[in-house]
């Protein structure tokens, strides 16, 4: 039972990390109609900038504003210099341009930081484990990630549902032309949304630093999964992205944890392991296929 709860927490932690990335991606996709492959690069930039500052100053906290600022500024620059030219083009042009950005960012990071992954330790205050239930120890840092992720989700909910900016964002994702016709400065809104998305990606990147490897190409590893989240949740829906992230995180973790064991009940050991590993790495894509069969526009399309 404790093992199950631990796996559930693991799934949630993966889920909220995905959510931080997916929230920005779905807003950018839903409101501006831009497929931004460079979102993963912004995640990487947040991780590198934050980790570099944290490593030089020795303070984990100082890394947070550094990572967030670097990611947000990169986001604004990308929107201003590249994406702005692409709003009226078709998706293929956008994919091509933002894919080019991935190559440029990867190479730039290699030139600045070299090919060796950066080292970052856990902040001392969060380095231990806590006993949540008798026998259930869980790393404090992962709990902190879950907490931050949920806080961000709550903040986004308030921002989108209770503020004027949020109203424009919701309107923009439903009917872009109408918002423009009503005299809203859509360009400013676009830049703001892009910056917000980049900020969240940078936060995800910096928080993932002590757990994963801060290295060139780390964004591409998680980008595909993030797109799966966006598609399952429904393009443009932050609420959808939230539920889809958690669903995906828990599904992925549960499959990896339990499927080989279940298969071993009915099959020979090595075959069960191989098949289990195969199916669990396909799991999230199978989930996406099933969701698309039932709800072709995603779970929460159109009711942000």
């Amino acid at each position: 039972m404790t093992l199950f709860l631990e796996q559930l927490l693991n799934g949630m932690q993966l889920g909220v990390t995905l959510f931080l990335l997916a929230a920005g991606l779905t807003l950018i996709f839903g409101i501006m109609g831009v497929i931004n492959l460079a979102h993963g690069s912004i995640y990487m930039i947040g991780a590198y900038a934050g980790t570099y500052v944290a490593a030089t100053t020795g303070s984990f906290l100082l890394g947070i504003p550094a990572g967030l600022a670097a990611a947000a500024l990169t986001g604004i620059a990308v929107e201003f210099l590249v994406v702005r030219q692409l709003y009226d083009r078709d998706h293929l042009d956008q994919v091509l341009a933002t894919f080019g950005l991935i190559l440029i960012f990867n190479q730039a990071i290699t030139m600045i930081f070299g090919r060796q992954p950066l080292f970052v330790g856990l902040p001392d205050a969060l380095s231990g484990s806590v006993e949540l239930l008798p026998g259930l120890f869980y790393p404090l840092y992962r709990l902190a990630i879950i907490a931050v992720g949920l806080l961000v989700a709550a903040g986004l909910y308030l921002l989108i549902n209770r503020t004027r900016v949020g109203m424009l964002v919701r309107a923009g994702s439903t009917n872009r032309e109408m918002v423009r016709a009503l005299g809203v400065d859509i360009r400013l809104l676009y830049t703001a949304v892009f910056a917000l998305g980049a900020l969240l990606a940078g936060l995800a990147g910096y928080m993932a630093g002590p757990i994963l490897a801060v290295q060139v190409g780390m964004g591409e590893q998680i980008l595909i999964t993030t797109f799966v989240v966006v598609v399952i949740g429904g393009v443009g829906s932050v609420k959808g992205a939230f539920y889809a992230s958690l669903l995906l995180g828990v599904t992925d973790t549960a499959l990896r944890a339990y499927l080989p064991g279940l298969l071993r009940q009915v099959m020979v050991g090595p075959e069960a392991d191989a098949l289990g590993a195969g199916i669990s790495s396909m799991g999230i894509y199978l989930l996406m296929a099933i969701v698309l069969l039932i709800r072709p526009k995603g779970l929460f399309a159109g009711n942000t």
Binding site: Q7, A213, I222, R256, A257, D273, S281
Partner: peptide, 20 residues
């Protein structure tokens, strides 16, 4: 015996199984 995925970056599920 666990075969992880090549694009996997989070091993929390595996850690729990090792501990068990």
């Amino acid at each position: 015996e666990i075969y992880t995925s090549l694009d996997q970056t989070d091993f929390a599920a595996e850690m729990a199984q090792i501990r068990a």
